[in-house]
């Protein structure tokens, strides 16, 4: 019982981070109708930004997070503006190919630049923890969880309560009407993709403090983000959060009862099951 409780707490904390990972993918998918297969690679880059600011300049990883977000925003904006805008009206297959190509290139470059070694971000307070109704909870994980929740909430506020956020939603719903009412889709798409990449950067920075990183973590993280998008649908950030928490808990339970090597098998099993039973998504609508 004690163990189960500990596992549940771990799962929830991890799930918050998963939700943040998926959020950028979901935003881009919903607005641009592009499933960004390079999303995980962007998360990986965010993790390395944080790593180098931590080891090279001695920055606190949480202070490096805004830097990772800003850099990834710029990268995302440029990728959309100069690469993806060329295929935006093309069938989805084309954009899948292009983002797959991006994922390969980014991963390859990362391996050249950062080497294939495992890296960890270990701030001095990494070992500090407290007891939560008997479960041992590391402070960094709680902090990462809190930041992930705060960013999810911030995105929701931005989309629901700002002029630009409204334009982003309008464009997702009716492109022709949005163009007739003053939206420049190229700019708006670049901005949206930039925000998606910034969220990936944030998720990467947080991932670096709770887990090991190497250049190859991207593909698996894209897969997890995709699973959450399918579970939660593309409509509400809240559903993405629920999807993330769900996946986190399921993975933690799998690790406990079936074995840590099976977590991916089980989470993709769920993905396939959802696709078969409710192809429109478990909570909201998918594309």
């Amino acid at each position: 019982m004690q163990l189960l409780w500990q596992i549940l707490v771990n799962g929830v904390l991890l799930g918050g981070l998963y939700a943040l990972m998926a959020l950028g993918l979901v935003l881009v998918w919903g607005v641009l109708n592009i499933v960004n297969l390079a999303h995980g690679a962007l998360i990986m880059l965010g993790a390395y930004v944080c790593y180098y600011f931590f080891t090279g300049l001695g920055w606190d990883p949480f202070a490096a997070l805004p830097v990772a977000m800003s850099l990834l925003f710029c990268l995302g904006y440029l990728i959309q503006r100069w690469v993806l805008n060329l295929v935006i009206r093309a069938p989805m297959f084309n954009s899948l190919l292009v983002t797959f190509g991006l994922e390969v290139v980014i991963t390859y470059l990362a391996q050249l630049l950062f080497s294939a070694d495992f890296r960890t971000v270990n701030p001095s307070y990494a070992g500090a923890n407290f007891s939560f109704f008997g479960a041992t909870v590391p402070w960094v994980r709680v902090l990462a969880f809190g930041v992930a929740l705060a960013l999810t909430f911030a995105l929701w506020l931005f989309l629901d309560h700002t002029r630009i956020g409204r334009a982003i939603r309008a464009t997702a719903q009716n492109l022709v009407a949005a163009r007739l009412y003053g939206v420049n889709p190229r700019q708006l798409y670049a901005l949206t993709f930039g925000i998606g990449a910034a969220l990936a950067g944030a998720a990467g920075a947080l991932y670096g403090v709770v887990s090991q990183i190497n250049p190859y973590i991207g593909a698996g993280l894209t897969g997890k983000s995709f699973a959450i998008a399918i579970i939660g649908g593309l409509e509400k950030s809240l559903y993405v959060l629920v999807g993330g928490l769900f996946l986190g808990v399921v993975e933690a339970l799998t690790a406990l009862y079936i074995g840590p090597t099976y977590t991916d098998v089980v989470s993709f099993g769920i993905l396939v099951l959802v696709l078969i039973v409710r192809p429109t998504g478990l909570l909201g609508r998918t594309a």
């Binding site: 002029r163 409204r166 334009a167 939603r169 309008a170 719903q173 009716n174 022709v176 009407a177 949005a178 007739l180 009412y181 003053g182 939206v183 409509e235």
Partner: peptide, 17 residues
């Protein structure tokens, strides 16, 4: 060609985008 999933008020505000 309204923005179907947005409220009436949000549609009007999109007019002033």
């Amino acid at each position: 060609q309204l923005f179907d999933q947005m409220s009436v008020e949000e549609n009007l505000l999109m007019g002033g985008y």
